[in-house]
Design a protein around this nucleic acid. Structure first.
Lengths: 271, 271
DNA sequence: ATCTGTGAAATCCTTCACAGCG
DNA sequence: CGCTGTGAAGGATTTCACAGAT
């Protein structure tokens, strides 16, 4: 693992530092809001746009599929197509993490894979706890080792007394009152909330109490958390509503196009 | 329902047209790629940024919670706080759909609710089909009427012969070969893919064949679709990996801060 | 000749800050 | 006086297009 040196070693930082993201701090109520008085030293480079991080994870998956099929190198064009983005964006995304390509050739699949894994912090295991063992929680718990290894589920919680002690996917369910203790002792890194919306905030508070810094929230509520805690939301209803918007928009578009076409002439295009 | 006229009717378009989103077309391989030769007429206004659409759905939920508690009006500040955004952004988002507030007062909860519902196309029902009745599919099917009504699940599909005919959440499971027929006859608007990744593309193709224009994809693959089809992705592994990135970044930050602190002096700050 | 890496331009989104209505 | 609606400024992200490496 431990890289010795950057390939096209251009600037400083020989250490194995991990990059930061930009635009992360809270909106900053007004004016300067950075602890010290300094005008933000920040190493300038070495920040990865939040949007790029999400895509790097996609590239990683595409790469693993390619590796399985025996690919050794891949061009930005191929990888981009497979990932559903354009190649300029892909190259820029990759450039945020270093320069691992060979001009005229492309990227080595395994090099790129391990570099993305390094940046995403996938070299160490992140322990996961799932709270709320209903339909969804069951589905999540049964993933066993979570998607693509690296995210072992190490604790389950629910309120329902009938569930406590029952093993789901090989792990016994604990009561949510034990969240702080168990998360702390098992060093849980990521809490997944799959409870009804009314319970979500209380559960979240206990996770934070137990030292969890990252939360994946499936409950349809906006969680309040201290600023060092990172929350990501997966919201089915909102996804459907966004799709609904597009249905409506398209229907409208088609309708007005039809009107326009009818006005212009009776043309038998198929489109 | 049918609005008679915009409140602060400033520009044209007295019809009940629905807005479009910006930046929607595919990346366009290179150069001009819009069907006709026109330099994109586009009505200029009346486009809602994609990012705003997602937030409007959030506001909608927060509003319904407020309505339940008997609130009649709400200020941009209150609504914004409850939705976890800042008030300027909220006001701008709302301004994309019209001007429904009262200066010095705020917004009427029910007016705003129904206007957002209108824009999101929630006034008509969007029929949903769920494909892949495994753990996740079960969870989805059992939502019964999908989140917040408006999205009735009207068809279920799987390959497993043991499942065909079995009712799940009140609906019998059909074979995936019947997707095109059934989706067409039942006028399914949205297809939800909860299959293993290997099956996802084939399922998606059949949904499209059945006239489905919107797909919500839970399978960890990038789907290829004709350009009139809208796909949204919910990807557990990627969400976890993004969180993992933040864990790694924070750990790194803490480490370097510790180093810096140690270097500067043995200071007993808490932070 | 090909394909990466990247400044610079273009586009999209957010935040500021204030005019103006009630 | 309070609060919305919105130009304009400021950031962030995407795309262009080309210099430079192999």
């Amino acid at each position: 693992m431990a890289r010795v040196q950057r390939d096209g070693g251009d600037d400083s930082a020989p250490t194995t530092e991990l990059p930061a993201v930009r635009g992360q701090g809270p909106p900053a109520v007004n004016g300067r809001a950075n602890g010290r008085g300094a005008p933000i030293p920040a190493d300038k480079a070495r920040v990865i746009p939040e949007a790029a991080v999400a895509r790097l994870a996609v590239y990683l998956r595409v790469l693993s599929g390619m590796a399985e099929q025996g690919a050794v190198t891949v061009s930005s064009e191929e990888l981009a197509t497979a990932a559903g983005v354009n190649s300029a964006k892909l190259r820029k995304d990759i450039s945020y993490i270093g320069t691992y390509g060979t001009r005229g050739v492309g990227y080595e699949v395994d090099v790129l894979t391990s570099e993305i894994e390094r940046v995403l912090g996938l070299t160490r295991q992140q322990k996961v706890a799932v709270v709320g063992i209903g339909n969804l929680g069951h589905a999540l718990a049964n993933y066993g080792g979570f998607p693509g290894r690296g995210f072992p589920v190490e604790a389950l919680f629910d309120v329902d007394p009938d569930l406590i002690g029952i093993p789901v996917g090989g792990l016994p369910v604990n009561h949510i009152d034990d969240i702080p203790d168990i998360c702390a002792t098992r060093a849980i890194a990521i809490g997944v909330i799959a409870t009804p919306p009314t319970a979500a905030q209380a559960v979240c508070d206990r996770l934070v109490e137990g030292g969890v810094h990252c939360v994946l929230n499936f409950a349809p509520v906006v969680l309040g958390v201290p600023e060092h805690v990172e929350v990501r939301k997966v919201d089915l209803a909102i996804e459907l509503q966004i799709l609904s918007f597009h249905v409506a928009r398209n229907a409208e578009q088609r309708a007005s196009r039809r009107t326009a076409a009818a006005r212009a002439s009776s043309n038998g295009e198929v489109v």
